[in-house]
Design a protein around this nucleic acid. Structure first.
Length: 589
DNA sequence: GCCGTTTTCGGCCCGACTGTTTTCAGTCG
C-alpha cells in the first residue's frame, strides 16, 4: 500500500463520514481530508515513516490517525474504517471523481438505483439519466439530470480530472486568454493566479483574475472566449469554462480598489489561506476575497485593498512571495519580518548542463546545436560562463582509449572557441553515467581531461532504495565528480522518481562539498521543491541547469529558478550565482 | 480528529454559484 492508496482510503473515509452524518462528524471529515492531502503530497513513503516511528512528522497526522495507519500496515485493514465504510458501496467512491458529484449526491444516486458495482456504475447512471429517472428523485430536477449526464459523459471520455498540465503548457493557455481579455475596455487589470502563480511544477485548473469597474461586461467577455468547450458556471463576480482541451479555467472579478484581496485569495494555496485566516481571526480580523472585516467594530464594513502588499501589511506582515504560500511556516516568518530573500533569475551567471552536437558518440542523446552556437546563446543571456556536459561516449562501443580520444577532441574544439569568444568562459564537464555497480562509466585517465564531472543514472532504476542510494554515493565519491544531476529521475506525468535515502545523500553532499542539480527541464524540475527545502536544512548547495539540447532550451532556466524559490532557496544556496572565479574555486575544492 | 503567541481544552476560514427550493443543501476553490 503506497501513499496514494492511503490518501484515497482517507478521502473515502471522510466521504463516508459525510454521508452518515455530516454535522456530527464535521471535524473528523476535515481531519481525514487534511491527512489525505498531506499524505498524497508527502515525499516520504508512509510505510518507511511507519517503520521508523515518524508518522507524527506529517502535519495532520495526530495520535489517533497514527494508530490507524499502524493498524493498516500491520493487518492490511483498519477495523474502525470497516465500520465507518460499512453500508456504502464502492460505486459511491468512483462517482466522487466526477465533477459536481460529492458524497451526498453520489450516495443518493447509487442507493436509488441500487448501483453497487464500481465497474458499471458510470454506464448505468448514464442510462438512468438518459431515461429521465434522475429528475424524478426529490431534490434533483431536469437541470441537475442534464448536468450530471454531461459530467458523466465527460468523465468517461477522460475530458476532465485528467492529468495536470506541466507549467509551460498552462502558461501558454493562460497567456492566450489574458491576451483576449485585455482587448476589452471593461478589463483594467488581469493576472494569473492559483498554482500557476505559485509556480507549481504542474497545474490543475487555470485561475485568472481581473480588476474591472464593470464586472458584468468583464464576465461576459470571459465566457465569450472562442476556444472553449462549454461554460461551467457564470455569476456576477466569478465564472468558469472548460477549454477545448478539457482544462478548466476559473475567472474572478473585483473592482479595482479590491484587486489586492482578490489576488491574495485566489493565489492560495488553500492551506496558506486557511492558516492566514485563522491567524487573522486571533487578531480580530476576518479575511475574504473582498477584503478585511474588523470584528471589533459592529458595522460589518469590509476594508478593501488595491494591492497584495497592503493586504499583508494590514495583517502586520511582509508580503509573501507566491512560491512560498504553501503553509510551511511562511506566515509566522512574515509576521516577524524574517522571510528569506529568494534567488532570482537575474542572479544566475552560468548554465552548466549543456549538450552540444559535438560528435562525442554518446551513450544517450546528442544536442542539436554546435558548441559555438551554445556559447553565443550564453553570451546573449549575459552569462559569465557555460559548462559543456555531453553524455559520456558509449562504453559498449568504445575502448577506453577511444573514449579518451573523443573527449580530448571535444576539448580541442572548446579551446578553439575559447580563443574566438572571450566574453563567456567555458568549463569542460561531462555527464557521466553511474553504472549499476556504482562505478563511473569512464576511467580516471579520461576523467582527468575534465574540469569536473556531473553524474547521473539513466538505467537500472528498479533497484532497492538502499542499494540505489549506495550506488549514487559511490559514484559521487569520486574526486572529479561535483554535481549530481536530475537526482530523482522523475518525468512529470510519465514516471515517478526513484526514492533514495535522502538524509544520507544530503549529509554526504554537505560533508564532501558536492552540489545537487535543480534541473530546469519542464518535465523534470528535479530535485523537486520539497526536497530542495529539506536539503537546504543540511546546508547542501545547488546548481540550477537547463540540460539543454538546443539553443532555445537555454531559455528554460526560469523554471529551475521557480523550483529553487519554491524550495526556499536564496542566492547563497545556488552555486551558479557565483562569479566565474568563485565558481571555479568551488570546483577545484 | 488535530493542535497550540487563547497551549492539553475548546476551538476549528470564508464565500461563490447552482438547482431546487421559498430558505437551503451540495459542491467547489
Amino acid at each position: 500500500m503506497n501513499n496514494q492508496d492511503v490518501a484515497k482510503l482517507f478521502k473515502n473515509v471522510a466521504a463516508a463520514y459525510a454521508i452518515k452524518d455530516e454535522k456530527k462528524f464535521r471535524f473528523q471529515i476535515l481531519a481525514y481530508q487534511k491527512a489525505s492531502e498531506a499524505i498524497a503530497g508527502s515525499t516520504s513513503e508512509l510505510k518507511d515513516l511507519y517503520k521508523e516511528d515518524k508518522l507524527n512528522s506529517v502535519p495532520g497526522i495526530g495520535s489517533t490517525i497514527k494508530s490507524r495507519i499502524e493498524e493498516l500496515f500491520r493487518k492490511g485493514h483498519v477495523e474502525h474504517f470497516d465500520s465507518v465504510l460499512e453500508g456504502i458501496p464502492g460505486s459511491v467512491f468512483v462517482l466522487l471523481d466526477v465533477p459536481s458529484l460529492g458524497p451526498k449526491k453520489a450516495y443518493k444516486l447509487t442507493s436509488k438505483f441500487s448501483l453497487t458495482n464500481p465497474k458499471t456504475v458510470v454506464d448505468n447512471l448514464i442510462n438512468e439519466a438518459k431515461e429521465g429517472n434522475i429528475a424524478k428523485i426529490p431534490t434533483f430536477g431536469e437541470k441537475s439530470q442534464e448536468d450530471i449526464l454531461t459530467a458523466l459523459l465527460e468523465y468517461k471520455q477522460g475530458k476532465n480530472k485528467t492529468e495536470r498540465m506541466v507549467l509551460p503548457y498552462a502558461s501558454e493557455i493562460a497567456d492566450k486568454i489574458i491576451e483576449y481579455l485585455k482587448k476589452s475596455s471593461a478589463i483594467n487589470k488581469v493576472a494569473t493566479l492559483g498554482s500557476l502563480r505559485r509556480r507549481m511544477p504542474t497545474v490543475g485548473d487555470i485561475d485568472i483574475a481581473a480588476a474591472s469597474d464593470n464586472p458584468k461586461e468583464a464576465i461576459d467577455r470571459f465566457v465569450s472566449y472562442p476556444y472553449k468547450e462549454r461554460i461551467i458556471e457564470k455569476g456576477p463576480s466569478t465564472a468558469s469554462f472548460l477549454t477545448s482541451g478539457g482544462k478548466q479555467v476559473d475567472f474572478m472579478v473585483q473592482p479595482v480598489e479590491g484587486f489586492g484581496a482578490l489576488l491574495q485569495h485566489f493565489t492560495g494555496s488553500k492551506n496558506h489561506n486557511v492558516h492566514l485566516r485563522e491567524y487573522a481571526l486571533k487578531k480580530g480580523m476576518s479575511l475574504s476575497e473582498r477584503g478585511i472585516k474588523d470584528l471589533s467594530k459592529k458595522d460589518g464594513r469590509i476594508r478593501s485593498f488595491d494591492s497584495e502588499e497592503k493586504f499583508y501589511k494590514a495583517l502586520g506582515m511582509q508580503w509573501i512571495p507566491p512560491e512560498l504560500r504553501e503553509n510551511k511556516g511562511e506566515i509566522e516568518l512574515a509576521a516577524n519580518n524574517k522571510l528569506p530573500f529568494l534567488v532570482e533569475l537575474k542572479n544566475i551567471r552560468g548554465d552548466l548542463h549543456i549538450h552540444s552536437s559535438f560528435p562525442i558518440e554518446p551513450s544517450h542523446d546528442l544536442g542539436n546545436n554546435s558548441i559555438k552556437e551554445m556559447v553565443q546563446k550564453a553570451n546573449y543571456l549575459n552569462y559569465e560562463y557555460i559548462g559543456f556536459s555531453e553524455h559520456n561516449p558509449n562504453i559498449s562501443r568504445h575502448t577506453n582509449k577511444q573514449i579518451y580520444d573523443l573527449i580530448a577532441k571535444r576539448n580541442d574544439e572548446i579551446e578553439q572557441i575559447k580563443s574566438s569568444i572571450k566574453s563567456v568562459r567555458i568549463i569542460k564537464l561531462l555527464e557521466t553515467d553511474i553504472l549499476p555497480s556504482g562505478e563511473l562509466a569512464i576511467d580516471d585517465k579520461s576523467l582527468n581531461l575534465l574540469d569536473a564531472s556531473i553524474v547521473s543514472i539513466h538505467s537500472g532504476f528498479n533497484m532497492e532504495k538502499k542499494k540505489l542510494t549506495d550506488r549514487i554515493l559511490k559514484g559521487l565519491s569520486h574526486p572529479k565528480v561535483k554535481i549530481l544531476a536530475h537526482p530523482t529521475g522523475r518525468l512529470l506525468n510519465e514516471r515517478a522518481g526513484y526514492d533514495l535515502e535522502w538524509d544520507k545523500i544530503f549529509d554526504f553532499c554537505k560533508k564532501n562539498n558536492k552540489a545537487i542539480e535543480i534541473n530546469a527541464w519542464p518535465l523534470r524540475l528535479d530535485l523537486p521543491d520539497v526536497l530542495v527545502k529539506e536539503a537546504i536544512k543540511y546546508g547542501v548547495k545547488f546548481v540550477i541547469n537547463t540540460d539543454s539540447h538546443a539553443v532555445d532550451q537555454m531559455n528554460l532556466m526560469k523554471y529551475g529558478v521557480d523550483v529553487a524559490r519554491r524550495g526556499w532557496a536564496t542566492k547563497n544556496d545556488i552555486l551558479n550565482t557565483l562569479s566565474y572565479n568563485k565558481f571555479i574555486e568551488w570546483i577545484k575544492k
